[in-house]
Amino acid sequence: GVGAGGDMPNWMTFLISDVPLYLIAMPVAVVLMGKSTVIETRKFNMKPGMFFKLLLMCLPMMWVGSMVGSMLSLALSDGEATNRVADLAMQTNIWNVVFLVILGPIFEEWMFRKQLIDHTRKYGEKTAILLSGLAFGLFHMNLFQFFYAFLLGVMFGYIYMRTSKLRYSTAMHMIINFNGGVLAPWILTRVDLDQLDKVSQAAENGNVAAMEQWASQNATGLAIMLVYFLLYGAVILAGFVLLIRNFRKAEFYIAPEELPRGVRAKTVYGNVGMVTFIVLTVLLTAISLFL
């Protein structure tokens, strides 16, 4: 999770927030997990058609999670909360590509899918996937992002569980981050939204000419935005249909040290390390909500 701070350039914000996480916190976590044995698994390839199908299924999960996160953030803060990650993404430049599209997905998939699932899958596939999703969501330390990150983490976890290859979830993660951190902000900046507020007020006061002039000046940007949102709406709808049709087709297998139902939650989430991680990330999420 990253948060833009004042007039700080976004490359510096990324550097300050991400480097300690990727180069210190993640390696330390792997060392701590090292005591848990990793079972050898077969690796399977995914056909392009299945990859595209699963990618489409990710989009409605992200949309619903984003809506829930935004509404809850605004409700808890009496409408005062701001989505700093979205603000950061709107600073469209090469650093969004470097950190959001390339480095972020590589480090995060290595940590939350490969390391976390490899060390916990022996206790149960569903247990490992849910743990991966929860840790991924909490890691963002931002309520705006928590729910969609959790849902995407579950989907990415399932994909990694069934293939044992990191390339597929990493590629999906990169595509989704490219859309949210590069493509969508670029499209939004094609239209002068700041000026729109002024001409809207002018139109309400009877100055229709100002609105017409704004529309003619932003015609190309408006057309691009319209096409983008129509296409995005269509793929989200297609993703919903695929989710409904394929939800029950998910396959899970019994793990070597499968935890019985009665003790799963206590064993996985009640240990000192996980309790500490949850408390710290929830606390930092709360702080980011009210700052």
Rank of each mutant, 00 (worst) to 15 (best):
G262A: 09
T82S: 14
Q201D: 15
V97A: 11
K53R: 14
G239D: 05
V97G: 03
V31E: 05
Y269D: 12
S169Q: 02
I176N: 07
M67G: 13
M61E: 10
K43E: 00
V182S: 06
F107H: 10
G239S: 10
M26W: 11
A209H: 07
G5L: 15
R248T: 09
A219P: 11
Y148K: 01
W95D: 02
L54R: 04
N205S: 14
P60T: 06
I102T: 09
I278Y: 06
K43P: 00
R261M: 15
L230N: 03
H119G: 10
T189D: 13
V191F: 08
V101A: 03
I117Y: 00
F277C: 04
F136Q: 10
L259A: 06
D18H: 12
A215L: 08
L74Y: 01
N179Y: 13
Y160P: 04
K35D: 15
P9I: 03
G270M: 06
E108L: 05
G157Y: 05
M46V: 06
T281Q: 02
T13V: 15
M225S: 11
V272H: 14
D118R: 06
Y168T: 05
V227I: 14
L242R: 04
G221V: 00
S36H: 15
P260N: 13
I175E: 08
Y158Q: 00
W110P: 00
Y269C: 10
L55T: 11
A255K: 01
N271E: 13
Y168P: 05
V68F: 05
L243G: 00
T285N: 06
G273R: 07
Y253N: 11
M50E: 08
S164H: 12
A171I: 08
M57Q: 05
Y269W: 07
G153Q: 10
L283H: 12
H140V: 03
F277G: 02
L188P: 01
Q201N: 15
T120N: 14
L59C: 14
Y269E: 07
A171Y: 00
E108M: 02
Y253Q: 13
F290C: 04
I287L: 12
G65M: 04
R84L: 15
F139E: 02
